[in-house]
Design a protein around this nucleic acid. Structure first.
Lengths: 259, 259
DNA sequence: CCGATGCGTTCCGCGTTGCGGAACGCCGTT
DNA sequence: AACGGCGTTCCGCAACGCGGAACGCATCGG
């Protein structure tokens, strides 16, 4: 972490740094531990911790150790539930369409399916039948695979998912429907950071997709770019993936969660 | 919410109130909305929001609206993962044993089972075979039922759980193993706020249990009190439940999550 | 075309409020 | 009885946060 300019409000900045340290201690941190790890005098810590305690952002065990408070968790879980990905990611989708002029989808996972929650069409004519609110089997679309890869981040968990939703549909002869092959594909996707769909869902259509995180472990949504095969040869595909990953990284608040 | 004394650190207190409001707006809040709902001048809000943004506790969409930031979510989810319920609840368990002098268990849910993560024995001699690390089917123990009732808070979801783990074991002839009866029992438990085990797991043994929350939707653990039937007649059972609920309520950070 | 409106943002002087060194009180230990 | 380690309290200094007012930039409507 690089040197930081003077914070806008020093006391708030300190409070946040305290919360970060408290979050790393599942069984509480002592005042002294906080003092050394933050290089702050105990009296200052004590005062700020009192403010955090008043609002339930910190609690204190009877032996004195401080813990992160339930109110912070409540706010975070609550917000995560009502987070409107569509509203938050709209600008990113629009930038992508401006850059690439292709069809952009935003999807979330629902059981064995992807549900499309937003869609932007390119200016050039294109026939893609998908609709906002529409569904597709997750394992044969780029959006779905991008979501599955991180929602079920181990081979074992993915195989369980596949088993629960067997048999997997096979809309084209390029669809990856064998669980073991799918698991290998997922591992590759996690390594690369994005998913491809090489006519696995619809003949003649290729897509690339990448997940969007929001501080939590699992992805909240994935963004894809779809185009007829002819407009997405290997070279352009690489450029499109670069744009996609760059735009997601540039979107505030989509940082990948720590392992 | 009653009138609050002067906060220990005003700027920190304000920052937290801002986070609380931001958490309620899944698609962002404008500066003006924050200003009116917090009765603060825009310039003050702006300054504090800048501090929050610097640490990722808030973000701003390109149209100006402010959102809760990913860093707050990250810290909360992270802490939730590593929260050591055993350490946090030890003092509560000890107070309960001091008050009641009976066997106290702390358990968490793992699939169809409860796993005991802590246990305190009374001074009076008693033969209870349970061990820390040991397991029991969830549906026939008080700890398990207290956890199930809130982990699967609707009849529908409970029936799904029951179906996945069918057939349910029936260690005594008082065990509730019919899914529909179990679902009714869960509804009753949610209404009462605690669970009973009337020799449903072991003949001659009664228990009462209540869940412990920590800001999240689901319970993180449940605490139970077990005793031979003869020491837990209806009248004492009521007193014991009162002690249990009172001690849990008195434990910092175990507030029930908002629906 | 230009004034009105509604945003977020910046400025700046006042004085309140947060700051931290030092001292305190309460344990267990030696 | 003296010690060390802990959270807590005190208090004087001045830094820092405060908020009213002004700004810049859109969009809208006459």
């Amino acid at each position: 972490m690089r040197q930081r300019a003077a914070p806008a409000v020093e006391s708030v900045d300190r409070a946040i740094r305290m919360l970060e340290v408290l979050g790393r201690h599942g069984s509480g941190a002592s005042l002294d531990e906080l003092a050394t790890s933050l290089s702050l005098p105990k009296s200052s810590l004590h005062r700020t911790l009192a403010a955090l305690r008043e609002r339930g952002f910190a609690t204190q065990r009877e032996d004195g150790r401080y813990l992160l408070g339930p109110e912070l968790l409540r706010i975070a879980f609550d917000f995560y539930d009502r987070l409107d990905v569509r509203v938050v990611l709209r600008p990113t989708l629009e930038r992508l369409r401006g850059e690439l002029n292709e069809t952009i989808h935003l999807g979330v996972l629902d059981g064995a399916d992807v549900v499309y929650v937003d869609k932007l069409e390119p200016t050039q004519p294109i026939a893609l039948s998908s609709k906002v609110g529409g569904r597709n089997p997750a394992h044969c679309t780029a959006v779905g695979k991008a979501l599955l890869a991180w929602a079920y981040p181990t081979t074992e968990r993915l195989l369980t998912w596949a088993q629960e939703h067997a048999p997997l549909a096979r809309p084209t002869d390029r669809t990856i429907d064998r669980p073991e092959a799918l698991a290998r594909e997922m591992a590759r996707i996690r390594t690369d950071g994005f998913a491809k769909d090489m006519e696995e869902s619809e003949a003649g259509v290729r897509c690339v997709a990448a997940p969007v995180f929001f501080g939590a472990d699992g992805p909240v949504a994935a963004i894809s770019i779809s185009a007829p095969k002819g407009r997405l040869p290997a070279t352009r595909m690489r450029e499109v993936v670069d744009s996609l990953l760059r735009e997601i990284a540039a979107t505030p608040s989509t940082s990948q969660a720590a392992g």
